[in-house]
Each structure stands twice: as C-alpha cells, then as structure tokens.
C-alpha cells in the first residue's frame, strides 16, 4: 500500500514540478504572462473543461469513460434557451430544468452502462450522437440570445475580485477531492477500477456507485453548460463539440490511469492548469495555435514517459 501511495504521489509531484518549470519558462518568454489578471482570466476560460474533468476523474478511476459530456453540454445549453424563450419560463426555472435534463442524460448513460451492461465507451459514443442530435432537433438550429444582464454575472462577472465561475469550480473541485479521498463512496470507486468483480463479491454497491458517477457527470456537464451560456450570452446546438477530448487529456495528464483504479482529483487539477498555461503562455510568446497543439501532444507523452521511468526505478 505504501509503495502504491509513493508512486501515486510521484506522478502528481512530477506533474507539479513540470508545471512550475513551465510557469518559469513561459514567464521568461513574455512579461505579460505571469500577472494576476492574466492568470485569473485563464482560470475563467478553463472553467467549463475543469468542471467536467472532476466527475470525469471518477468515471476514469472506475475504468470507464464518458464521451457524451460535450453533447450533454450542447443539449443543456439549448434547453436553457428553449425553456426560457420558447416556453416562456422565468430564467431561473429554465436553468433548474436544464440542470435536471443534464442529470437525466447522465442517468440514462448510467442505466445503459449498468443495467444493459453496455461498455461505457460504446454506450457514450451512442449517446454522444443522440444528445447532439436532440440539441439540433430541439433548437431547429436557432440561436437564443438576449439574456438579462444579471445572468452574465456568472460567466463574465467577478466576486471579491475573482471570476465568479471560479467559486463554483472551486466548490465542485473540493467536493470531488473530499468524496474521492475520504468517503466510502470514493473507496468503492477505486475498488471498482482495480477489480470490478472482486468489488462486487465483497459486497460493495458497484452498480449504484457507477450509476451515481455517470449521473453526476451529466449534472456537472449541465452546470458547465450554464456557465458557458452565461459567458458567451448565446446558445447554439454545436456548443461543446470536441470538449470530451480536452477533458480526457486533462484527466490522463493528471495521472489518472485509463485502466482504472488510480488517480486523484488534485492530479486532474494540475493537469488542467498545465494545459491551460501552455496554451496561453505559448501564444503570448508568439507560437501559433497549431504549434501549441503539437507541444501539448508532446508534453502529454513526456509526462507519462517520465513518470513511467521513475516508477520503474522506484520499483527496483
């Protein structure tokens, strides 16, 4: 157990070192990078991906995957607009209903995966198409605009000098850290990822845990949709396309094993920040977008390689 913990700490530690190195290198490249205003602004831009990455860490720790998060985001974004403008509901009610719909979409994923025993990758590939299709069908490809000014506070405003959505993100992250680290639920999550059959035999609530995790993934995707709509003040059915790959990159960069059983929310957070500062810092030092994409791919491999090499040494 201690050996396992050591390795665990190691990957997150390596990542943290990498993060600090990147921070210094990028700061040396551009004097506009390491400023409070820029960093807070970057944090604002990464909130949607970050929010979804928290439940995704749980999903991947169980050995599963959720590819439908981007489509749930799109669907919920559309629903806010449709409930508010077409159905004439007050905006808060529209938001609550949209959150419910996202939760339901996640629950449906969970049911398909646990009750019908469809592998998560296939199940969520199918719902990725389905939910995006629903978003397109329901909206008839129309945008909904003209939200009241108060709604923009969430995505564009500040609270105590910090972008408002960051408070929400911090809350979700802390809840995530707490549950995965300190509760029975968290221990069951790891147990499922290590050996699902064994977890079932030892009487753990495997099905219920997985169902809850996928439901939470849907709920948080809906939350991200609300933040996103508030930030850009419009809804479109193509919102969140491809976000699933960004989220998964952040999670696996953060040291969560794609085979399940290993990973921490803190690692995900570091992975996320590393990705964001690379994108921002490289852009500020004059690297174009396509170059940045290449660098992020390379960093992903290097991070895993370093941690592989070091863990081999520590085993010897």
């Amino acid at each position: 157990m201690t050996a396992v913990t050591r390795v665990l700490v190691r990957h997150e530690a390596i990542l943290a070192i990498l993060f600090v190195v990147a921070l210094f290198v990028l700061a040396a490249q551009s004097d506009r990078f390491l400023t409070t205003a820029n960093l807070l602004n970057q944090a604002r831009l990464m909130t949607e991906v970050g929010l979804i990455a928290i439940p995704m860490t749980f999903v991947i720790v169980t050995g599963g995957i959720d590819l439908s998060v981007g489509s749930i985001l799109g669907l919920c974004a559309i629903l806010v607009g449709v409930f508010w403008q077409n159905a004439g509901l007050p905006l808060p009610a529209a938001i609550v209903l949209s959150l419910l719909a996202g939760t339901l979409a996640g629950f449906a994923n969970g049911v398909i995966i646990t009750r019908f025993r469809v592998p998560p990758l296939i199940a969520t590939l199918a719902t990725l198409a389905l939910y995006r299709g629903l978003a397109e069908g329901i909206s008839q490809a129309r945008s909904v605009r003209g939200y009241p000014a108060w709604f923009a506070t969430l995505g564009q405003g500040e609270l105590l000098g910090i972008p408002s959505q960051l408070w929400l993100f911090a809350l979700v992250a802390i809840v995530g850290i707490f549950i995965l680290r300190f509760t029975t639920f968290g221990r069951t999550t790891y147990a499922i990822g290590n050996n699902e059959a064994a977890a079932e035999f030892s009487g753990l609530a495997v099905e219920r845990t997985k169902l809850l995790i996928y439901t939470a993934s849907g709920f948080v995707s809906a939350l991200a949709a609300i933040v996103f709509v508030s930030r850009v003040s419009t809804t479109r059915s193509d919102m969140g396309t491809g976000i699933e790959l960004e989220v998964i990159t952040a999670v696996v960069l953060g040291g969560t094993s794609i085979f399940g059983g290993r990973g921490m929310v803190v690692g995900t957070l570091i992975g996320l920040c590393l990705m964001q500062i690379l994108q921002n810092g490289l852009s500020l030092s004059g690297v174009r977008g396509d170059g940045t994409t290449v660098v992020i791919g390379a960093v992903l491999i290097v991070a895993v390689l370093i941690s592989n090499v070091l863990s081999r040494f520590s085993n010897d």
């Binding site: 990078f33 500020l284 004059g286 977008g289």
Partner: peptide, 21 residues
C-alpha cells in the same frame, strides 16, 4: 492564427490571448 475547427469557444480564447499579448 486561429482554431482548426469553426468553434466559438476556441476562437474566443485565441482573441483573449492576443489581447493579453
């Protein structure tokens, strides 16, 4: 410089970075 997909979010991030730079 711009995104490789016609994506509203990525375009916003690009502009934001150039404002800072």
């Amino acid at each position: 410089d711009g995104p490789t997909r016609a994506n509203i979010d990525e375009q916003i991030t690009f502009i934001d970075n150039y404002i800072t730079s």
